[in-house]
Design a protein around this nucleic acid. Sequence first.
DNA 1: GATGTAAATTATAATGATTCTAAACTAGAG
DNA 2: CTCTAGTTTAGAATCATTATAATTTACATC
Lengths: 138, 138
Amino acid sequence: MNNNSVFINKLRSSGLRPTKQRIKICKLLFDRKNTFHFTINHLNNILKNKYVEKISLATVYNTVHAFKKMGYLKEISINSDKSYYDTNVTNHHHFFDENKRELIDLDDKDVGKINIKKVLPGKKINSIEVLVKIANNN
Amino acid sequence: MNNNSVFINKLRSSGLRPTKQRIKICKLLFDRKNTFHFTINHLNNILKNKYVEKISLATVYNTVHAFKKMGYLKEISINSDKSYYDTNVTNHHHFFDENKRELIDLDDKDVGKINIKKVLPGKKINSIEVLVKIANNN
DNA sequence: GATGTAAATTATAATGATTCTAAACTAGAG
DNA sequence: CTCTAGTTTAGAATCATTATAATTTACATC
Ligand SMILES: [Mn+2]
Ligand SMILES: [Mn+2]
Ligand SMILES: [Zn+2]
Ligand SMILES: [Zn+2]
């Protein structure tokens, strides 16, 4: 159970002022055991339910972008409808449940090492990610 | 070099009327040797340059959706800005060049077999795709 | 603790991709 | 040729996201 000072330090150390909005969002995103995958809309709804004082949607966007820029969040592209964000900022793989429309992390050991044999001159590999789309049986 | 009757048959056989708009788009998309990756905007621009008679943007969307539904096109999700479409409708992997912002097909042999070890009860795997983000060196 | 200033928040407008609507047009069956 | 369902179309609507510009806040300096 993190307390606010952890988040205040985290924000300060990366040049972000610890405002009450950012701290609330930090608590919501990072004060948990498991990876959290969410959309802006999802996050915004949770914030509306959890706190009386509203955080403007623009601030939710701004904050998520700031956290992404600082490497606290990672953006995942599943479809072009909306962006998904991930509190697991490492390079990793996903199941995407097409019925629940939600992401599930895959461990590297669930996928195995991927070795790309093709090389393009002048280009370097930035990331290798596997997306496994799953759906209900039958 | 396909002639129109190939496309007319293709459309007919899947219950789509061969209109002049659909035939033009077929020629543009499928009368080529290599896989074509495109966005709606990209396709629309090519059509505007290639033909004097304009095809309305709504028709371009309608047609691409119809082709996707019929399995002539595949949608690829790279980011949430816009959708990419692919004339290679098989399950396959991609490079995404972050500088040119374009997709490049990877052969299965460039990636190797991917064996997902994790199983979720009640769920089946629909597709497994690898996205390798690349960018200019240095 | 008061003051000044840059950073942040906010409501609202703008943007841009996509989808919807409803009227006009057309393919093709009969 | 006629009729009708399918298609195209311009334009409006929608929705996620970004921009704007005024207000508020954090916090360094006094
Ligand atoms: Mn989609
Ligand atoms: Mn993006
Ligand atoms: Zn994840
Ligand atoms: Zn492809």
